[in-house]
């Protein structure tokens, strides 16, 4: 019995170490003073951050990524929010079909979406355009928005809305002054998730981006060509961003008190795999 528990603990700790290994390795290496990728780093320095922020190519990639992530998260939020409301409150016929369609970008493997969008973008002249990337990232963010906004709408007591109507509010008044303020924390959380999804996206981007460069695309191309420690600085910043975003979402959802919303694969999210 005791031995069994010990063996289990060893397996558990090893597995957790295995999961955390990439993060634990990359962060200290970004502060390395060495030219080559060695772990543990022989000394500490800011040189890789200097070389990152001093490189106009990287800076351009950062601005492109930020812009595309902000626009696509916002458009996915507006369209997805409206659709989630419509699904929850209105649509009766074809409901499950529409819902399945909204989830589809999550289920269809990224490479297949990438290939399909490549063909159609090549045909319509969207290949390698900013707009093309925004459209692709919006589509990829849709399932996440539908899951999160849908869950928060279901947890919202519909009587609150009914009270607004019975007091004579119009739909836009009821939405703008009752529903949106109540759901604000989960709406912001959904936007953050959509933003992170877009900011990390690599598969579809590498197929349809053409000469446009996002942070993951530049990282991927640099990784294939040569491995420079500058990438460890980028990686560390990405990890930092993720930690901050997750922390924010955690706080928001705690404030919004939405037990049904989970921030993991249990919610059906396959964020940036493959």
């Amino acid at each position: 019995m005791r031995e069994q528990r010990l063996v289990l603990a060893v397996i558990g700790v090893t597995a957790l170490a295995f999961l955390m290994m990439p993060i634990v390795i990359v962060v200290p290496m970004s502060f390395s003073s060495a030219q080559a990728l060695t772990f543990p780093p022989p000394g500490l320095s800011w040189r890789w951050y200097d070389s990152l922020f001093g490189d106009p190519d990287w800076m351009e990639a950062v601005w492109t990524s930020l812009g595309i992530a902000a626009i696509s998260a916002s458009s996915a939020l507006v369209l997805g929010g409206l659709a989630a409301y419509g699904l929850d409150r209105g649509l009766q016929r074809w409901r499950s079909l529409a819902e399945a369609n909204f989830m589809a970008p999550l289920i269809v493997p990224g490479v297949i979406t990438a290939v399909a969008l490549y063909f159609v973008f090549a045909w319509t002249g969207l290949l390698g355009t900013y707009l093309g990337l925004v459209i692709a990232h919006t589509i990829l963010a849709v399932p996440l928005i539908i899951i999160m906004i849908g869950a928060s709408l279901r947890s919202l007591d519909v009587r609150i809305e009914q009270v607004a109507w019975s007091l004579g509010a119009s739909w836009s008044q009821a939405i703008g002054r009752v529903v949106l303020p109540t759901l604000a924390p989960s709406i912001v959380a959904a936007w953050i998730f959509a933003f992170v999804t877009s900011f990390d996206e690599i598969i579809v981007t590498s197929f349809v981006a053409g000469a446009q460069t996002t942070v993951p695309k530049k990282m991927y191309e640099d990784l294939i060509l040569e491995i420079t420690p500058t990438i460890t600085a980028v990686a560390t910043l990405l990890i930092g961003t993720t930690v901050v975003a997750l922390g924010l979402v955690h706080l928001l959802l705690k404030r919004g008190q939405l037990p049904s919303v989970q921030t993991g694969p249990a919610a059906g999210s396959t964020h940036s795999t493959q």
Partner: peptide
């Protein structure tokens, strides 16, 4: 803590997670 160790890598960019294995 253990769940955080499972969830955090899940949200960190796949490129970062893959890249580290080159070093390891």
């Amino acid at each position: 803590i253990a769940l955080a160790c499972v969830l955090l890598p899940f949200w960190v960019s796949i490129l970062v997670r893959t890249y580290a294995w080159i070093v390891v």
